[in-house]
């Protein structure tokens, strides 16, 4: 009986379970496969033949040139003398990395002050920080856009980066981790003459790598996905991030040149998916604990 439980034998119900799961997994992956397939087709094939056109079902050649054509079709960035696609990509990488670096640093500092220094009003400050989670982004969208105009940050990198340099989730996540570091370590370091900053950087930060990596990853994904804000606070095509550039491309070219649109999407999706496969352990954990992108 118990042996049977440990190794469930074949039965119709189990076959059904696998069938449903496989169907679900196929549905999850199929749109990506379709994207890759279409990205490698000619325009004619993409618009007339939706099913697999290659061996054994066909003999079409793979159109790798679609990728270069997409980059060329995106247009010219006169400021940097490069293609707009490159510019979008650089903008996305620069803003995302700046946001990640900023968030990690401000979160580590705040979390350390909240856990290792006996500050007057410490609990009150932490409550205040937590309370800001309740403020939905959209509620403060209009005033923030107005602020960007008044600070003259509109259409600059500052508008894309600075408002996101502090993250409540980051502070919370890292603080939880810092709380678990034994107090004895701190006392020992003090006896050895280490100050707060040295203790923070030589002991606390290396010990908290998992929490810091999770914070960094989640903020990166979130910053990379940011669409509404860049759309509102940038005007020039040279200031667009990938998400905005891709939407503009969809509006201007995507309807007529599907294969290029899919090549564009592939160039955005594939790096993220590869990145995800290597880091998915941190991802799933982080997403479960914080619940971002709700």
């Amino acid at each position: 009986m118990s042996a049977k439980n440990k190794h469930p034998q074949f039965s119709i119900s189990r076959a059904l379970i696998y069938a449903i799961l496989i169907l679900g997994a196929l549905a999850s992956v199929l749109p990506f496969a379709y994207m890759l397939m279409t990205a490698l087709k000619t325009y004619g094939s993409a618009t007339t033949n939706n099913f697999w056109p290659w061996f054994p079902l066909g003999d079409e050649a793979l159109q790798w040139s679609n990728f270069t054509e997409t980059i060329e079709t995106s247009g010219k960035d006169n400021q940097w003398q490069t293609f707009l696609f490159i510019r979008y990509f650089v903008n996305s990488v620069v803003t995302s990395l700046a946001i990640v670096a900023g968030t990690v640093i401000t979160s580590i500092f705040a979390a350390y002050a909240l856990t290792h220094i006996n500050l007057p009003g410490r609990n009150l400050i932490f409550l205040l920080i937590l309370a800001t989670i309740m403020v939905p982004n959209d509620l403060t969208l209009v005033p923030k856009v107005v602020m960007m105009f008044q600070l003259q940050w509109y259409n600059t990198y500052l508008a894309l980066i600075v408002p996101f340099l502090a993250s409540v989730f980051g502070i919370f996540l890292i603080r939880q981790f810092f709380l678990q570091i034994p107090r004895d370590l701190f006392d020992a370091a003090r006896i050895d003459g280490a100050g707060h900053l040295r203790y923070l950087f030589t002991i606390v930060v290396p010990l908290s790598k998992p929490a810091i990596v999770t914070t960094a990853l989640l903020n990166f994904i979130w910053a990379w996905d940011n669409f509404k804000w860049p759309l509102l606070v940038t005007r020039d095509s040279s200031m667009r991030v990938l998400a905005v550039g891709m939407q503009q491309f969809l509006v201007s070219e995507g309807g007529t040149k599907v294969q290029l649109m899919m090549a564009f999407a592939a160039m955005v999706v594939v790096p993220i998916v590869i990145f995800y496969f290597f880091t998915q352990k941190y991802f799933t954990e982080g997403v479960i604990t914080t619940g971002i992108k709700g």
């Binding site: 749109p31 669409f227 969809l250 564009f264 999407a265």
Partner: peptide
Amino acid sequence: TSTVASAAI
């Protein structure tokens, strides 16, 4: 994956 990319697909 990026929302805009999957929405475009």
